[in-house]
Amino acid sequence: MNHLPQGWGRPRDDVYGAYDASYLQNSGPNQHTQQPVVTGTSVVALKFKEGVVIAADNLASYGSLARFTDVKRLRTFADAAVVGFGGDVSDMQYLDRLLTSLDTEEAYGTTGHTLNAHNLHTYLSKVFYKRRSEFNPLWNQVLVAGVDQEKKPFLASADLLGTTFSAPSLATGFGAHLAQPILRTLAPDEEAAAGLSKEQAVEAIKECMKVLFYRDARSMDKYSIAVVTKDGIDLRENEKLEAQSWAFAEKIRGYGTQVN
């Protein structure tokens, strides 16, 4: 999986040859979703001693057009977990409704037991796998952050193919290339992650958001960040990268026709 959601779930160009875009035309037989339309870019997350920090920017792109700039891609689930969505935004909205109804039905019971992040991840991955097996995928890669049944930090990924994995730090899309190396130097294994404080983790995630803002063209400086611990969720949806700006770009001289 790379940083281009358009490429997810497709045969790799270097393996199968260049993709023939004529297949994307809508004429002909009824088709399922074959490509994401409005997309969100990276989600990054890191475990620390008591929980998990997760972040994603507030941009939804329409191809290279920065189409929606106020899109909240971190969704909470019953004070127990945060799901960070990359990929297609309409599929994210569908999944959000699915999780809302799951939460509602879960609350019918009187035992007070709500699903934890681990349960939620299993549920989501089965939804993804079922839909890919019907050749009607939900075009997302998601990170599920929270605590498990033993109240220990939980972080795992699930994607449109039903592939799942878990690690002390995770990043989707471009973040897998740019953020993950930064996070892995800080938390190479579970023990190292368990030694991180909340402040350290938040700082590392913010640093990743900064790098992504400068090097991922489908990103922006407004983002959402959440800290999940056994005590609940602290979600901030309108953070801004401090003192960061692309304004310097117009002063750059010496490229192309602009020789001085």
Binding site: M1, R10, P11, L24, Q31, T33, R132, L161, T163
Partner: peptide
């Protein structure tokens, strides 16, 4: 004839 490839 493929647009979505279900394997990786």
């Amino acid at each position: 004839e493929h647009a979505f490839y279900p394997y990786t």
